[in-house]
């Protein structure tokens, strides 16, 4: 007889690194959303924009599949 397993559906997670991370944009992303998730502060989107000026011309336009460099926090 085995017991019922607990529900872990509400587990929250995160990750960070002292190295630059690579993040692949998914549908619905924006730089501020990514900054909020990576840095805990949406206003830090400029850091991501600055690090990716070679591939982002307009910070309001990022596309699924783009691989962005996320500087360390």
């Amino acid at each position: 007889m085995t017991g019922k397993m607990p529900d872990f559906s509400n587990v929250q997670s995160g990750s960070s690194s002292t190295a630059t991370k690579i993040y692949e944009v998914v549908s619905g992303d924006s730089l501020s959303k990514i900054a909020k998730r990576e840095y805990g502060n949406a206003n830090e989107w400029t850091r991501i924009f600055e690090a990716n000026k070679d591939i982002i011309k307009d910070p309001n336009k990022i596309f699924p599949g783009q691989k962005l460099k996320i500087p360390p926090k």
Binding site: S15, S17, A19, T20, K21, I22, Y23
Partner: peptide
């Protein structure tokens, strides 16, 4: 997480 370290690094 995908990282691109240029030397020793720590990830969590």
């Amino acid at each position: 997480q995908t990282i691109t370290p240029t030397g020793p690094a720590t990830s969590e």
